[in-house]
Amino acid sequence: MSRLIKFGMMAALAAIALVPLAPRHARAAEMTPAQQKRQMFRRGAQLWPIYCNTCHNARPGGEFSPTEWNMIIMHMRTQANLPPQDANAILEYLKASR
């Protein structure tokens, strides 16, 4: 029975993953691209020390090139299960702060 409960729990988690969730940032559509970039930079600057330091010392943007950061943040999305809007904000901050 306990295994059935575990299977049920996993199925529920999978359902959560596959159900499209309502967008939380509808206001972003009203902003110009430059304003969106600035907002992402600010969000990234706030999240970068928190998310990265959870596991390891946060590494500054100058350590890697923008192309390398693209791949590293993609990798960290997997490694730490980062939500996409937060991962994109941190990426924007790291690339802009080089």
């Binding site: 988690l13 999978a14 993953a17 997997t78 299960n81």
Partner: peptide
């Protein structure tokens, strides 16, 4: 594996799953 993360509250209040 199937995995992912999502924001459920304020900024930084997130949850994630892996099966």
């Amino acid at each position: 594996q199937l995995r992912g993360g999502f924001q459920w509250g304020e900024m930084g209040q997130v949850a994630d799953y892996t099966i």
